[in-house]
Design a protein around this nucleic acid. Sequence first.
RNA 1: GGGGAGAUACUCAAGCGGCCAACGAGGGCAGACUGUAAAUCUGCUGGUUUCACCUUCGCAGGUUCGAAUCCUGCUCUCCCCA
Length: 424
Amino acid sequence: MNLIEELAWRGLIQDITPETEEQLNKELTSGYVGFDPTADSLHIGNLVPIMLLTHLQRSGHKPFALIGGATGRVGDPSGKTQERQLLTTEIIEHNLASQKKQLEQFLKFGDGPTDAEIVNNYEWFKKFTFLDFIRDVGKHITINYMMSKDSVKNRLESGMSFTEFSYQLIQGYDFYYLNKEKNIKLQMGGSDQWGNITTGIELTRRMGGGDTFAITAPLVKKADGTKFGKSEGGNVWLDAEKTSPYKFYQFWLNATDEDIENFIKVFSLLSRSDIEKLIAAHVEAPHLRLLQRTLAEELTLRIHGAHALEMAIEASSILFGNATAENLKKLSERDFLDVFQGVEQVEVARSLIEAGVDIVEMLSEISGFLSSKSEARRSLKENAISVNKDKVGEDYKVSASDLISDAYILLQRGKKKYFVVRAV
RNA sequence: GGGGAGAUACUCAAGCGGCCAACGAGGGCAGACUGUAAAUCUGCUGGUUUCACCUUCGCAGGUUCGAAUCCUGCUCUCCCCA
C-alpha cells in the first residue's frame, strides 16, 4: 500500500493536488508540515499533521517539520474570525523551543536519506528586508489572487490588518524556499491550510521553482459536533505537565463508540488489517472497549513512555475497577503517589483531620475541591460523594481513620472526578 | 443628525409592582441503567450560620410599606429614515 492509499483509508485526505501520487511513486520525496508556535506545547489536534509526517517517513520519504519562528510573528488568519493578538518575541521563542523538543520524539532523526529534519522559517526571513520581500516575492502574486482565499474573504466584512493579509505570502515563500534549498516538493497540513499551501505552490511556480504538491487532512470531528481535543480542563496537551499521562489516557479511553473507529484510523500506527480485526472484535463485544483501550495505550506509550502508561492503567483500574477502601489502603505510599500523580492534590494540617472534620467543610473550604458549601451539600444530597471509594452522607466526619498510608484521603465526586488530600 | 427597539443567571429566553433567586430551553454537574460508551429516565445548577437570611435582573439615583418590573439620568447594542 503506498502513502496515498494508506492516508486515504485512514480518512486523512481532504484535498490533494493532481499527480501527487505519481510524484511519490517516482522518487524519494521530501515533504513538510508547518507548526504554529501559539502555545508552549503541542496538543492532540497537532497530532494529525504529525501523523502525516510519520506516514510519509514510514512510506520511505523524507519528512521535515517546519516551526514557524517567522510566521508565528505574523499570525495565521486561517479559520479566525477576528484579528489575532500578536505574541511577544520571548513567548514565541519559548514556544518554539518547547515544540521542537516534542516534535523530535515522533520522527526518526539522523543522517539517513529518510531521516527527519526540523527547520525554522525565521532563519530565512530574519535577513529578508521588507523592500526586498515586496519586490522579489510580492510582485509575483496579485492582490486579486490573495483576496480569493477563504481566510481573507471571510474577513472582508469584519476587517483584517495588512499583517495578517500578508500571512499567506510569508508561508507561501516558505514553500518556494524549501523547494529551492532543500528540494522539498510536498507540503501537508490541516484542511484549513489549503489556501496557504496553494499560494505557496502558485508562488513557487511563478518564481521559477519546480513542481510542488500538496495534501491536506480533514479536521478531526466528533460525532456529536463538539470540538475534538477538548476535555473538561480545556485542551488535551502532549506535555505531561499540562495534561497528566493519566488524564491523557483517560481522554482516549472515554471516546464514544461512534468516534473511536475514526480516531484509531487517524492516530494509530497499526496496520489496516490489525485495525480492521480490532473493529470487528469491538462490534462483537463493545463492552470490552477494545478500540478505546488499544488506542489509549498506544498513544500514551508513544507520547509519555512505558512507565507513565503503566501508571495510567493502574490508576484507572483502581479508580474505575471495583476497588474498595481495603484495596486502596493496601497501596504503599509510593504506589499511591504514582497512581495519583495526575490527580489534583492539596495539603491539609494533620491536626485538623485528627480532630475530625465535617465532610462539608472538607469538600469546600478546606480542600477547595468544590467551590462552595452549597455545592458540597448539594453533591452530598445527590449521593455523589465518596471518601476512599465509599459513599458518604451529609453528616459524615473525616477523621484519622480515613487516612491511607497514614497520609492521604481520596475524595471523589461522581465516577470520574477525584481529589487527593494530604495530611501534613 | 432624526425616529424606534432592547440590555435578565454559562448561553438563548420569559417575567412588566408583591406568590421572583426569578418560567422555559440548551449547556453543565450528579443519580439510576450500562461498557469509565451512546440513548433514556430522575434530580441539581447565586451564597450562607439552609424550614430563615443575604447578594443578584446594564450603571447610578428616585417613587413605594414593597421594584427585575414604575420614574429620571448615564453607558452600551440593534433596527429604520436622512
